[in-house]
Design a protein around this nucleic acid. Sequence first.
RNA 1: GUCCCCGUCGUCUAGCCAGGUCCAGGACACCGGCCUUUCACGCCGGCAACGUGGGUUCAAAUCCCGCCGGGGACGCCA
Length: 467
Amino acid sequence: MRQIKTRFPPSPTGHLHLGGARTALFNWLFARHHQGVFVLRFEDTDRERSRPEFVDSIREALEWLGLHWDEGPYFQSQRLEIYREYARRLYEEGKAYYCACPPEELERKRKEALAAGRKPGYDGTCREKGLPPGPGRVLRLKVPPTGSTVVEDLIRGPVAFDHRELDDFILLRSDGTPTYHLAVVVDDLTMGITHVIRGDDHLSNTPKQILLYQALGAEPPRFAHVPMILGPDGQRLSKRHGARSILEYREEGYLPQALRNYLVRLGWSYGDQEIFTLEEMIERFDLSRVSRSAARFDPEKLLALNAHWLRATPLKELAEEVKPFLRRLGLPLPREDYLQAALATVQPRARTLKEAAEMLTFYLVEEVEYQPEAARKFLTPEIAPVLERLLRALEEVEFTDEALERLFRGMAEETGLKLKKIAQPVRVALTGKTVSPGLFEIMRILGRERVLRRLKRALNYLQGGAS
RNA sequence: GUCCCCGUCGUCUAGCCAGGUCCAGGACACCGGCCUUUCACGCCGGCAACGUGGGUUCAAAUCCCGCCGGGGACGCCA
């Protein structure tokens, strides 16, 4: 069998979003699974809306997701001659014809047809005129008026389209540039694409493209139309939710592995398995397990998966990943072993790298800032004697979790206070907050000096002194 | 409007092709409990779905038809 070849063909008119990323992922996985080739191609024939910065951001997003391409990127804008050549052939063989209908008139007819409840397609006015090429003229494909074309979809099975539903669509615009249909077909053909995996919004375009392959005397590739991703409200993805750029998720502290894991399970499943490493995805991915119904984007599940992969990331790696977020918070980067030790305590609590960085704050600042509510509730005069005793004891004690815990429990017993009554004020003194990682691990990591300093400051604060 | 696709817990889904083992399984979310110095993590438990009507059959989530609902396409956008 011929080597499998898939492609991802974004148009650089916007950032890579969830829908596009999943399409890219499926194509990439399919190619990898079959030891095939994955091609990146920019469909930038829309000169009005295509922008170079989107080319860059899409490339960056794909690379960040780990979806590296083996071939390309190709740019349709650099292949215009090839499309013209194929178009010329079609014209010369009488399979396409030039049309001189003015756009305004077509628009008028379209509206009329729609209003009258008819199909809005091109009516074939110029089909038999035998017009030569000329300024303002477009090239249209002669679609057979009868019969039907069947799309043998790998996911949906055979889908038949009656030719009466199709019209003589445009191949070459009046400025000589190719339209989408001509460009994809010629590209997929000349690039040797074997499998076209794309959103099912393309399903109804497929018969047109198959007809084009036939006109060119070529064998069409295999098609697989994957269900769309809808917003949480069941509507098409919009800026509000999932149409956010993949790169924005990176900024928010999501991990590529989490995005991949979330996306692969949107429309594809492997029994009850929810968690997939990259290797597992590649090994198990196949088109037969892709579902047929549209899926809604659920930000909560993405978050949960991110938390999972955050916990699964080795500390050394996690430290590297979190550093940019610490910098962004203006926090100093500590020694590597200190960072990793601190990170270990927030790892089970943070759901994103951004959250992790925020939780690390008290480990890194010189002086913590008390949350007003926390200070009011726990940094009260009654606790002063206990803090004083603690201060003395902490001068001596070994700074291990066990010794510290023994000390605190002993203190609770001596003073007749619940451990919680002592722990919370200390927690506030050390972190400024009522919520934090375990008290003893925090103390161990902060170290004797910092702990004593923060306790003294708290003591001073609660006795009414300036902090 | 026409054509096409789709329809299992709130969400993602398993099951459907090869009808009985499904009073429908898992995950996220939610609720309760355990653990516990707070919050998480972890563990235990709970809530919760076959869109609807008909048909086929001893038996239907699974097969067939209608209806309803959702989405998509119908562009000199891709």
